[in-house]
Write a protein that binds this DNA or RNA. Sequence first.
DNA 1: CAAACAGTTCGCAAAATTACGAACAATATT
DNA 2: AATATTGTTCGTAATTTTGCGAACTGTTTG
Lengths: 110, 110
Amino acid sequence: MTTPVKTDYSEDEKLVAMYSKAMGHPARIAILNYLASLDTCFFGDIFEVLPISKATVSQHLTELKNAGLIQGTIESPKVKYCINTENWKMAKKVFERFFSQCCSKVNVCK
Amino acid sequence: MTTPVKTDYSEDEKLVAMYSKAMGHPARIAILNYLASLDTCFFGDIFEVLPISKATVSQHLTELKNAGLIQGTIESPKVKYCINTENWKMAKKVFERFFSQCCSKVNVCK
DNA sequence: CAAACAGTTCGCAAAATTACGAACAATATT
DNA sequence: AATATTGTTCGTAATTTTGCGAACTGTTTG
């Protein structure tokens, strides 16, 4: 009957952390903002707007794709990117739950 | 009249990225969850619940403090930690705005 | 005053992130 | 068929992150 020491993190904790990590760079936030404001968007459009090389843009896009926040489809010779709305909604929900758990009661230090 | 190429990221983009980065690790999410569920909490309580060394816990706490999401006050010989409600609300708002900008229109690829 | 307690900081190692240019693939154009 | 266009991948370098044990700081207790 000891304290319930965590041997691992919960799925929810891992999920929030995963989305957060993917969003943990201004370039990736800028990409998401940009994609969220558009219907369609090619790699070139994103690259054009960011102050980094295309190799780096491509890397950031891969990370966002791996996190599930965006998706890309080939339209030769271009690649069209967009928000993955399904997962975007999921992330939105997960963050809402996360942030709403605090500040309901007064729990300030001191 | 060329395309408005970004030379830097907006303050909002940097802010979301900063909070996200701080939240980009399951241990830090677990800490925030834990703190959000309590009124008061000492370092030892947090350490006790996590599967990592106290040196590492201390590091994570420092990061969360630097991001402004938590605060700590010394109550010798212990240290009491808690959510920084002011900034927590700020973060909540910032993420709400971020996530609500999408999915209003149908902008799925293909 | 010595020993115990509660955390932080230091020093270090391993791994991951960030960034870029150059090389590469795959289609499109001439 | 050669060349241009569009992105991705590779190789590499610099930096940051993550994690830990050990040493340290500052109270507090014996």
